[in-house]
Design a protein around this nucleic acid. Structure first.
Length: 102
DNA sequence: TACCTGACCTAAT
DNA sequence: GATTAGGCCAGGT
């Protein structure tokens, strides 16, 4: 299989993710906008799922616009709570209170 | 090769 | 405020 995604894009996304402060969360769309791909939030999510192959990044601080966590990744909620992120429900963060303001 | 699906978003109704 | 429709890109089958 050839190269999966453009590496420059991946590193741009990951460098943004790296900037998310502890106790805050960012949305896919927010990141997509920061890298100049406003409508490509899906790519951000895809990169997140492959981020582990490129290094250690706080991808648990990335959620969707509704604040829902990644389905099937229970550790994410634990990690976020440990950092002080306010949880609304079991699988939802309080995005209004904890969203990363640029 | 073609179609469907997905860690999604925004704007319009 | 909730629901619908449209858009974008890559992977998997």
């Amino acid at each position: 299989m050839a190269r999966i995604l453009d590496e420059a894009l991946i590193y741009e996304i990951l460098s943004v993710v790296e900037e998310i402060p502890e106790g805050k969360v960012a949305t896919y769309g927010q990141i997509a906008r920061l890298i100049g791909r406003e409508r490509n939030a899906r790519l951000v999510g895809r990169v997140m799922s492959m981020a582990e192959f490129y290094g250690s990044y706080p991808c648990h601080r990335v959620v969707n616009h509704a604040g829902r966590l990644v389905p099937g990744w229970d550790m994410q909620g634990v990690l976020l709570e440990d950092e002080g992120v306010v949880m609304k429900k079991e699988d939802y963060v309080d995005i209004k209170r904890c969203q990363w303001k640029i």
